[in-house]
Each structure stands twice: as structure tokens, then as C-alpha cells.
Amino acid sequence: MLLLLGLLLGARGAGAFMMHVASSCPLAANGSLQSFDLTVAFNKNPLVCYDPDAQRFNACDWKLLHNLAEQVAIELNNGSTWVKRAEARRRACSKLAAQFWAQTALRRTQPQVRIIPAQTGNPSVPICLTCHVWGFYPPEVTVIWMHNGDVVGPGDHSPMSAIPNGNWTYQTQVTLSVAPKAGDIYTCSVQHASLEEPLLEDWSPGLTLEVTLMVAVATVVMLLGLSLLLVGVYYWRAQPPAPGYTPLPGHNSPSAVPACPHPRP
């Protein structure tokens, strides 16, 4: 029937055309099926629409092709084939909606977290800590900063709202400007529906990059020197004894020592 419709439109000088059938199943916020839509479209414009309550097709083009749309609707309603197809799609929507909702909206994906420090150039608060949280779903997440186990007040950090990653997960970040001292521990605590307990990530002040490089170079030099020392000792012990005086057999034996002659009177 759609082939005949295409030939009819082509015969009327419609030129290039595209016919397609599209159906959709809008879902409510709780995952329930709100409605069912099935449309026969011409060049992406709705031509005939299916009414699931009345179980019949109606013309939904009120412009140039309205008369043709009414004729198509009559043809679709006269036979039971297209009505059966529409009802089969509606039953499939009702059956698959719960599975789709469970695999998408109801799923739980645990977040990942990482703390990245950066220099601020401000002597009073020289370090800016950024807690990056990503890869979580649903988007509702709570991120809290703690200093040595104590929660940092809301005025000391600025949380950002979660933004989508484009793969059904979300990300967010929370920054905190600090003046760390030796022994301080800053903790980023992440609370999410996918976690049984908060996810904790710690950061403590360490050596600067320059000092770290100096320590690394000194360590390498020390290990190299120790290796050379061990190799030298090994080769020194492996050498044969130097040539020297070799005593005759029995020379060191007490019995081989000649007795002193008795003095003559």
C-alpha cells in the first residue's frame, strides 16, 4: 500500500520522496508508559497517525496532503494488518519499558575520585585542591571536604553541579583553597546511591617538585656508588694472592731449627 502511495505521489510530480513508519513510547518519571505513538510520515512530515484508544488510523496532515492522508487512513483501517502491527508495537513497548528503565534510569554506577593540587600564587592559601568525581549514575551526589577528620564548612568550598559525560554517566568537582602544614590530611568524601559507605580520597602535603627531583637524583647517585663499591670488593676478593716469599718445607717447624752449639771451654 505504501508503494502505491509513493507511486501516486511521484505521478503527481512530488519528485524525490521518503516514506517511513516511526513509533515511540514516552515514559513517565517513574518509568511507567505514558502513551504510544505510531506515525506514517512522508518526507519527515506526519501523514497518518495511529490512535491507540480507538485502535484506528487518522489523518494528521492538515495541509497540502490532507485529502491524500484521509485516503491512506481509510485504506489502513479497512484491513486488519496495519492495526495488528500497531497493537503489537504497543504491547512490545509495555513489555520492554520496564527492562529499559531498569537498565538505564534505575542502574547504579559507582563514582571514581581523584584529588589534584595546584599552586594558587597566594601566600595565605598557596594550594588549591580540586576533588574530581566522575563516572557515576544517577547524577545526585554529595561531595564533602574534611581537614584532619573535621568537615570543612560550606563557606570554604564551592561545589559544582553534576554535568553529563555523554555516556549515561556524570561528573562534578569541588575545590578547596588551603595552607597545608606538615602532618595535615585533607579528605574528599563522596556519598552516592551506588555506595554502601562514603568513598574517601586523602591528600597530604609532600615535597615540592624541585625537592623531589633532588632527592631522586641523590638516591640514584647513592645506589650507583654502592653498586660500584660492591663490584670492586667482589673483584678484589676474587684476585689470587700476590707473589712473594715462599718458605721451604719444614722451615717453620720447630724440630727443623738447628740446636745452638755448646761453647767450648
Rank of each mutant, 00 (worst) to 15 (best):
182 A>W: 15
86 A>Q: 01
233 V>K: 13
17 F>E: 04
73 A>C: 03
180 P>R: 06
66 H>C: 04
94 S>Y: 10
33 L>Y: 06
137 Y>M: 03
202 D>K: 12
72 V>M: 04
77 N>L: 11
119 Q>H: 11
72 V>S: 01
6 G>M: 03
23 S>V: 05
166 G>N: 08
262 H>A: 07
217 V>L: 14
34 Q>S: 13
55 Q>C: 09
261 P>N: 04
17 F>C: 02
262 H>V: 05
168 W>Y: 14
115 I>L: 15
250 G>H: 06
7 L>V: 09
119 Q>P: 05
76 L>K: 01
169 T>M: 15
119 Q>S: 14
70 E>P: 01
144 I>V: 15
90 R>H: 07
68 L>Q: 04
103 Q>T: 12
173 Q>I: 04
235 Y>P: 00
225 G>P: 02
177 S>M: 06
216 A>Q: 09
63 K>A: 15
131 C>H: 01
32 S>D: 14
10 G>C: 05
82 W>P: 00
130 T>G: 04
147 H>T: 00
242 A>D: 06
141 V>R: 01
265 P>S: 08
73 A>S: 02
253 S>M: 10
139 P>K: 13
127 I>N: 00
62 W>Y: 10
234 Y>W: 14
254 P>C: 07
79 G>N: 09
57 F>V: 02
165 N>A: 11
97 A>W: 04
230 L>C: 11
56 R>T: 03
104 T>D: 11
35 S>M: 05
34 Q>H: 09
108 R>Y: 06
100 F>E: 03
86 A>H: 03
35 S>D: 12
67 N>Y: 10
46 P>R: 06
136 F>Y: 14
25 C>R: 03
244 G>N: 11
178 V>Y: 02
209 L>V: 12
126 P>G: 05
30 N>H: 11
37 D>A: 15
167 N>L: 12
166 G>T: 04
97 A>K: 03
10 G>W: 13
9 L>G: 02
96 L>K: 06
129 L>I: 08
146 M>C: 12
197 E>S: 15
100 F>Q: 01
103 Q>H: 11
35 S>V: 03
74 I>H: 10
258 P>V: 06
222 M>S: 15
19 M>P: 02
134 W>Y: 14
78 N>C: 06
190 V>S: 00
186 Y>K: 03
44 K>A: 13
216 A>M: 08
102 A>D: 14
59 A>D: 07
265 P>F: 07
46 P>Q: 09
256 A>C: 12
225 G>N: 13
149 G>L: 05
230 L>F: 12
192 H>T: 00
124 S>Q: 15
151 V>E: 10
217 V>K: 12
163 I>H: 08
151 V>G: 03
78 N>Y: 09
147 H>V: 00
260 C>N: 08
233 V>D: 08
120 T>M: 04
222 M>E: 13
148 N>H: 09
246 T>I: 15
91 R>A: 14
190 V>F: 02
257 V>D: 07
147 H>D: 00
